[in-house]
């Protein structure tokens, strides 16, 4: 697989074709996010054999199975815990966690903040579609207020999580956010995540068109994906727009970059130091 940059990117090289077409609903943003990931992997010339995808439960969790790599589909909310073990035991692998808003912010919230704190090298791609799609459209921690879901039939009243602020506050080395509409930027961000030596967290704003979109009358798939444009605000190039005037705009791009020591390397250095001092004694 090395030297595949010379080859033009063809997504079919990275898919388990016999499983296609995938099970996602028509217009689901998760597919676009998956393309971005695979294209980033291609452009960075990461070997499929060295790529380990760990995913949880839900629509986001099932996405991993379509990747022709070492894929682990684990328990609900726990992919970051599994990935921590995998990445520590096998530092040679490129570990990517694919998780969802419910998976990583609700049931797996604890694992997320501690993975951010630990700063172990891996990439966490959180596909945020504001809803539990697989189970039929229940409210998730990122469901906007007033939105209808099957468990908020009169509109959600709970405040939402800002996953990126959470990750940044918890100490994640790299925090980013992008919408699926901006596939090329999403891919570039993912490349940065994969190259980052530490824990990188990327929130992908994805659309649940069939369940969430329909329930809230958000329009057709093309309408929903276009609406992402009106709510995003690229932030990579500094203060293009003063924030106070557009308070409802969601920042996209690289949102935080904390240069901190990577955990696995730190652990191994720490151990080496211990052993050395023991030898002297």
């Amino acid at each position: 697989m090395s030297n595949n940059l010379s080859k033009e990117f063809n997504i079919r090289d990275y898919l388990r074709e016999d499983l296609m077409p995938h099970f996602l609903c028509p217009g689901c943003g998760h597919g676009i996010a998956l393309r971005a990931l695979l294209q980033a992997v291609h452009e960075l010339e990461i070997s499929k054999d060295q790529l380990a995808i760990v995913s949880g439960i839900g629509c986001s969790g099932r996405v991993g199975a379509y990747i022709d790599a070492n894929t682990f589909h684990v328990t609900h909310g726990r992919p970051l815990a599994f990935a921590t073990g995998l990445a520590l035991a096998r530092p040679d692998l490129e570990v990517v966690v694919i998780t969802g808003d419910g998976d990583s912010l609700a049931i797996g919230g604890n694992h997320l903040i501690h993975a951010c704190r630990r700063n172990l090298k891996m990439t966490c791609m959180m596909l945020n579609n504001e809803v539990y799609g697989m189970t039929g459209g229940q409210a998730s921690p990122t469901t906007s207020q007033t939105r209808y879901t099957t468990t908020s039939p009169k509109g959600s009243i709970e405040p939402v999580f800002d996953a990126c602020k959470l990750a940044e506050a918890a100490g994640a080395g790299f925090v980013g956010r992008e919408v699926t509409l901006q596939m090329p930027s999403l891919k570039n961000l993912l490349k940065k995540c994969l190259q980052y030596d530490g824990f990188s967290f990327l929130e992908v704003i994805s659309d649940c068109t069939e369940i969430f979109g329909r329930k809230n009358q958000l329009g057709t798939s093309p309408e929903m994906i276009l609406n992402q444009k009106s709510s995003m605000r690229p932030d990579s190039y500094g203060n293009i727009v003063d924030e106070p005037f557009r308070p409802n705009f969601m920042k996209t791009g690289v949102l935080a970059l904390n240069e901190r020591p990577e955990y696995s390397a730190t652990y191994r250095q720490h151990v080496a130091r211990q052993l050395k001092s023991k030898e002297k004694k």
Partner: peptide, 12 residues
């Protein structure tokens, strides 16, 4: 190609 969630389109 980029926005096809189903990877059904390939541009050469």
């Amino acid at each position: 190609e980029w926005l096809c969630p189903d990877f059904a389109i390939n541009i050469r």
